Simulated assay, not measured.
Amino acid sequence: MPKIVDHEKQKEKIAEAVWNVIHREGLEQCTVRKIAKEAGLSAGSLRHYFPNQSELLIYSMKLVTNRVKVRIENMRFTGTPAECIKQLLLQLLPADEERRLEMEAWFSFTAKSLSDPALRPLRKEMNEEIYSACKLAVETLSRSGAMPEMDAGEEIERLYALVDGLALHALLEPERITADKIDSVLTRQLNTLK
């Protein structure tokens, strides 16, 4: 009897292999051969699922987005509006190993999108989702009455820059920008909006 293969699970396994190769060796070393080996497949099998690198990267990054969305959908938000917002924003930051792998893949993807036009629409979409989360945060705090009179547009941009900056620096300097530091800086910023 032939083996039944769950193609979606196989694609996820390949995408996770991409993240692992990026983590260990960087995007430039993310070759078909290395990804296939990491995923336990032949190069031909990998090409069956993803005929080119752009399609593989796009799928890998959509998987990051989907996992973040699932984590957020499964969260139980309790506490003050600021505490709930912080828990939401922490899902976008490398505060644990899973999110660190996702964030490394995201930044590698972002850099690659500068030279690969096929990746740009997804990069723009993902940036808009992060921006939307920051906008939701500021608007939620404003509606709750917890926010003093401020320029909401400026506060959204400031929070968006902070989230991106924390993510980047946590990847570049993990010994300095730890999960505790991310939490502390984010808490302090949200407290300025109260």
Rank of each mutant, 00 (worst) to 15 (best):
D180T: 12
Q87Y: 04
E102Q: 13
M75A: 15
A161M: 11
R71N: 15
A133P: 07
L56F: 04
F107L: 15
L63D: 01
V68N: 06
Q91C: 15
L56T: 01
V163H: 00
R176D: 12
R24A: 15
L190M: 08
G44E: 05
K13I: 06
I130G: 09
K69S: 13
H23N: 13
G26N: 06
L92S: 09
L93A: 06
T187M: 04
C134T: 02
L159F: 02
I14T: 04
L171V: 04
D183C: 06
L193K: 01
I156A: 01
A15E: 01
L56K: 00
W106Y: 15
I4Q: 09
K112H: 08
A15L: 09
K86L: 14
R158W: 02
N191R: 10
C134L: 04
D180G: 13
N66I: 07
A146K: 12
A15V: 10
S184K: 10
E25K: 12
D6H: 03
S115L: 11
G26V: 10
G153Y: 04
A15Q: 05
A133I: 07
R47H: 03
P117S: 12
F77Q: 10
V64C: 13
K124W: 05
I177H: 01
E125G: 05
M61A: 11
T31P: 03
R99N: 13
D96Y: 03
L57Y: 07
E155D: 02
D183M: 05
A179N: 04
E125L: 08
E128T: 07
R143L: 14
L46C: 00
K112M: 13
V32C: 08
R33W: 06
P174N: 00
R33P: 05
K112G: 03
K69D: 14
Q87N: 14
K86T: 09
K135P: 03
M61C: 14
P121C: 02
E102D: 12
L88C: 10
E55L: 13
Q53A: 11
F50Y: 03
S132L: 11
A133T: 08
L88V: 11
R71S: 15
E104C: 07
Q91A: 14
Q10K: 02
I72F: 05
V138K: 01
L141F: 01
G40Q: 03
G79Y: 07
G26D: 09
L168I: 12
M150F: 06
A95G: 08
A39F: 02
L168N: 02
S144K: 03
L193S: 03
L159W: 00
L141N: 01
A146R: 11
G145T: 08
H169G: 05
G153K: 02
K135N: 07
E97G: 06
K181S: 11
A170I: 09
K112Q: 15
E102M: 15
N20K: 14
N74I: 07
A95D: 13
Y59E: 03
K194A: 14
S113F: 00
K181H: 09
K135R: 14
Q91P: 07
A105V: 08
T80M: 09
